[in-house]
């Protein structure tokens, strides 16, 4: 077996479901340590309370597992800040996987309510990254 991204995602899913805090595996020439990130575990609760306030809000989700970056490493300013008006497809942040920076994009136009994920935190496939209150275009 080679440790590829789909494998890592599968393992991350297993960790999440099983409630195990960490897993470490070693293959020839490769080693992998997956640790469940606490702030992320706590995040859904915050997200849930936000949605209780505003049922119409939408969630921007990561579509790949990796570390969240609210700003590009070359930029001091984050991609979005709460209260900011954004268009559908706007970049909310980046998920860093190896040398790749995959964008997390806004599913709809609106006002940024909360950026849930913190810079450096591990996010998984489908992890909520930000909540957006849609505004009719």
């Amino acid at each position: 077996m080679t440790i590829d991204l789909p494998t890592i995602e599968r393992l991350a899913g297993m960790l999440e479901r099983s409630g195990v805090a960490a897993i470490e595996i070693e293959e020839a020439g490769q080693s992998l340590k997956l640790v469940m990130d606490r702030p992320i575990a706590a995040a859904p609760a915050r997200a849930a309370s936000a949605s209780a306030v505003d049922d119409a809000s939408v969630t921007a989700k990561a579509d790949i597992a990796g570390h969240f970056l609210a700003a590009h490493p070359w930029r001091a300013k984050p991609f979005v800040e709460p209260g900011q008006r954004i268009e559908a497809g706007a970049i909310i942040g980046l998920v860093k996987v190896g040398l790749i920076y995959a964008p997390v994009v806004a599913p709809a136009a609106g006002i940024v309510d909360t950026v849930i994920a913190e810079t450096g935190a591990l996010v998984g496939y489908g992890s909520p990254v930000a909540r957006i209150r849609p505004v009719a275009a």
Binding site: L5, P6, E9, D63, I64, V97, G98, L99, I100
Partner: peptide
């Protein structure tokens, strides 16, 4: 090489 491999991998994942 890492960029090349990563781009290919992400392409496959997404």
């Amino acid at each position: 090489d890492r960029i090349r491999a990563s781009v290919r991998l992400v392409e496959e994942c997404l």
